[in-house]
Write a protein that binds this DNA or RNA. Sequence first.
DNA 1: CCGTACTTGTTGAGGGCTCAACTAAGTTGC
DNA 2: GCAACTTAGTTGAGCCCTCAACAAGTACGG
Lengths: 168, 168
Amino acid sequence: MAEARWLDAEEQRTWRTFLGATHLLFDRLDRELQRDAGIPHAYYEILVRLSEAPERSLRMSELARHTGSSRSRLSHAVARLEERGWVARRDCATDKRGQLAVLTDDGYAALAAAAPGHVHGVRVHLFDALTPEQVRQLRQISEAIIGPLAAGDAAVTAAPPADGGRTR
Amino acid sequence: MAEARWLDAEEQRTWRTFLGATHLLFDRLDRELQRDAGIPHAYYEILVRLSEAPERSLRMSELARHTGSSRSRLSHAVARLEERGWVARRDCATDKRGQLAVLTDDGYAALAAAAPGHVHGVRVHLFDALTPEQVRQLRQISEAIIGPLAAGDAAVTAAPPADGGRTR
DNA sequence: CCGTACTTGTTGAGGGCTCAACTAAGTTGC
DNA sequence: GCAACTTAGTTGAGCCCTCAACAAGTACGG
């Protein structure tokens, strides 16, 4: 059943173009950030979310949700950011399992230093390339993609991968 | 000058939504592929491009271009695929520096086994979520993004990163 | 209470990627 | 014909991420 619905030529082209565009864009932004601020984009996101949180701090789990990251990944990332003194860990008062990640002043300063360049990159490489109408479309498209993925969408994940060939 | 053009609230939301959608999508597809075929998406791409090439083979550099990968990354990847017997290296007849990557029969079989499931994922998670009109828009948007990035776009890369703050 | 089940967060191994350095071979200009 | 430069591809160190296993705490049912 999986193979009943191949992609037609038009869809193929769309898929590959989309893939190419996103990878070019994210690679570029990631590289600019690494070069100018010394951190990958995922770490930048962590700093951003912390900077927006009350007290500049969040539970690890919350932070993981906000950044779309696994708990494991976040744990490793925060460990790195802690080494630099940009984030600190504190015990949670109400739940002894919990850890609060707190953005330090140095972390805030690092973010403040990195943000203008990064935002500039986003503007130049993304928004400047699109018409206002396309920007609107892009948001709707993105929302449409998120919907099913964020919801269950479980049918596909759970299904015994519709064999169709994995072979031995 | 970099900080002269911040993102307004609308742009912020669009950017974050776009980021969220693409990461959800690619993470999901990558995971499905890893689970069902045992390879990351980047490796899948290599197999696809080889399978479409005459003689199922391409120069390393060509393959790198087609897959949007660095030579280094490709070299590592092909080494891995070679270990599995899915790709073989052959010397190039006309250029003694050159290496041909060739898709083996086992590699072709692995691709044939993995493709239906992956294509199904792309359809379900991407195309089924969008209207035909949105699919058309997505391609145009992607093309618009690629344009400047693929061309020089050098102004930003080369410029002494418009300081505006990196420094501490 | 107390055992079972779930949640929170961490850890380490393993794999993929980037960057910079390097070898080897082709190219150019004199 | 040869020195300087460019191009092809590889390598290793280091970093980030995933996955699975785990310790420690909380919540719930009897």
